[in-house]
Design a binder for these strands. Structure first.
Length: 525
RNA sequence: GCCCCCUUCGUCUAGUGGCCUAGGAUUCAUGGUUCUCAUCCAUGCGACAGGGGUUCAAAUCCCCUAGGGGGUACCA
């Protein structure tokens, strides 16, 4: 048995979208599952639309998702693999060779029809509601004299495949099963443009042969191309690869996924929006395939172990942004705090004064730890931690904070002032930007109730809580009421980490100042 | 127009004739934990597109209808 070889063959005419990424992934996963090779081939024969920029974006997108290739274009170093070149525009000689052979054998012929005639033909067919729309074989049986006459006119021919007429082709598709297609549906398709540049179906076959491709997984829009290609393999006396045509990803309305659909972006945009790549990978794997009856979250290795192309569904799947977001949260929570800090670094850095990350590593670790289970996208970090770095002493309240604060407004000034005094008398950590590494090094947040007492050089959250509760009891304040205006004053919002973690992270000077500032502003009303 | 494919909770899916009063995940709702939010836990709402067959028995097999998707390029 020949070694399994699969390929993803994008054309660099635009960014890598989710559908393409999923196709690449299924090829990749099947190659890995079969112990074969995964090849990346660039189909750049559409010179009008192919750009190097698109190529780079596709390469980057695949790498971001962790879809690596054994053979294909270079990333940094040398091109990989011995079946190259992996760019079709660098393989023109190979196509020429095969086309000459096919013309000689009669499987292909020269066609001198102009684009204008073809357009008219199509119009005419549509107008009379013809059941067949396509090339009419006008140049199929030109005599040498007729050909010479057209050459003399200066017409440059393209080359068409001579389709067998009225033949039922049996196709075995790994996903669809056995399908019969009558060649009446297909016309004599163009293999090569007048300039010698091949078209998709032709180049694809030549390369699949040249690269020893054994399985082809691609979108179902290629199903009929598979039939054309199968016939070409036959004409060439070669065994075609096994085909698997996967259904398309649909938008919320059930239509074809397009760039204009909300929430649908190119792979790199998801990266730039802060989606963890593992989550995107995991989520799109699920669009048309199930890992198991009771689990949706799995690693790449687990996918490779479980992946069977035959178990990919035949129906198109709708893209559901909400589930993707849930999946993102799953991954963020799965990380260790240290991993989370690493992932969040690029997002946090620009949101903080220069040097903060380097000089306050322990503090930052604690900040990230407090938000790890409250975040789905990495991009949420900067906003969430903004209150810690705010320059204003009197923070602006958001709607939730405003509402909860107003509930206790009559007592607020008194409570806040009293609490500020308590905190001032306590042994809290210093406030950023002072060095608070000793405190943060000793106390790991988020603090938990049953965590052992720390050997902190200052009050830890548990100690702060004890003092706070003592204060509210002494004053006869309901603890549940007290908490809200305090949180508002300290963070400007009504949500976030536990209040004593908040106080700990803020440190003495800032916490006290914020409490008094709000107390003053209420008193001034 | 013609050809091909598809159709289980809103969404992703499990299910290949009896294990299905259809399972899981997500979303939503409710409750619990709690200083808020989030997490976590529990509970609930929620589907076999419709109609005919075949069979002792059908989500599972067949047919029709409807709806959806794809193709029908000198794009890939």
């Amino acid at each position: 048995m020949t070694a399994p070889r699969l390929r993803f063959a994008p054309s660099p005419t635009g960014p890598l979208h989710l559908g393409g990424a999923r196709t690449a992934m299924y090829n990749w996963a099947l190659a890995r599952a079969l112990g074969g090779k995964f090849i990346l081939r660039i189909e750049d024969t559409d010179q009008q639309r192919s750009t190097d920029e698109s190529l780079q974006i596709i390469l980057e997108g695949l790498q971001w998702l962790g879809i690596d290739w054994d053979e294909g274009p270079a990333v940094g170093g040398e091109p990989r693999g011995e079946h190259g070149p992996y760019f079709q525009m660098q393989r023109l000689d190979l196509y020429r060779e095969v086309i000459d052979q096919l013309v000689a054998s009669g499987h292909a012929y020269l066609c001198y029809c102009t684009p204008e005639r073809l357009a008219e033909l199509r119009e005419e067919q549509k107008a009379r509601k013809s059941s067949f729309i396509g090339y009419d074989g006008h140049c199929r049986d030109l005599t040498p004299e007729e050909r010479a006459a057209r050459e003399a006119e200066g017409l440059v021919p393209n080359i068409r495949f001579r389709m067998p007429e009225d033949r039922v082709v049996k196709v075995h598709d790994l996903i669809r099963g056995e399908v019969e297609v009558n060649t009446k549906q297909l016309d004599d398709w163009v293999m090569m443009r007048p300039g010698g540049v091949p078209l998709y179906n032709f180049a694809c076959v030549v390369d699949d042969i040249g690269m020893g491709i054994t399985h082809v997984v691609r979108g179902e829009e290629h199903f009929l191309n598979g039939v054309k290609q199968q016939l070409l393999f036959e004409a060439l006396g070669k065994e075609p690869p096994q085909y698997a045509h996967i259904p398309l990803i649909l938008n919320q309305k059930g239509g074809k996924l397009s760039k204009r659909d909300p929430g649908v972006k190119s792979v790199l945009e998801y990266r730039d929006l802060g989606y963890p790549p593992e989550a995107v990978f995991n989520y799109i794997a699920l669009l048309g395939w199930g890992f198991s009856a009771d689990r949706d979250v799995f690693t790449r290795d687990e996918m490779v172990d479980a992946f069977k192309i035959a178990s990919v569904g035949k129906a198109g799947a709708k893209f559901d942004l909400e589930k993707l977001h849930w999946m993102c949260g799953e991954y963020v929570r799965q990380w260790s705090v240290e991993q989370c800090v690493e992932r969040a670094r690029a997002w946090l850095e620009p949101a903080m004064p220069a040097g903060t990350m380097a000089q306050h590593g322990a503090w930052l670790r604690n900040i990230v730890a407090c938000y790890q289970e409250r975040v789905q996208l990495l991009s949420e970090f900067p906003d969430k931690v903004g209150w810690l770095f705010a320059k204003d002493v009197r923070l602006e309240f958001d709607a939730g904070a405003e509402k909860k604060f107003n509930k206790h407004k009559e007592h607020a000034a008194e409570w806040l002032r009293g609490y500020a005094d308590v905190l001032e008398a306590s042994d809290l950590p210093p406030s950023w930007p002072e060095d608070r590494s000793a405190a943060d090094g000793a106390v790991l947040l988020p603090s938990q109730k049953d965590a052992p007492a720390t050997a902190a050089p200052c009050d830890d959250p548990a100690a702060i809580e004890a003092k706070t509760r003592a204060f509210t009891e002494e004053r006869g304040i309901k603890f549940g009421h007290f908490v809200h205006p305090v949180r508002a004053a300290l963070t400007g919002t009504d949500r976030g980490p536990g209040l004593f973690d908040v106080v700990f992270l803020l440190g003495k000077a800032t916490a006290v100042a914020r409490l008094r500032a709000v107390a003053d502003s209420v008193a001034a009303d």
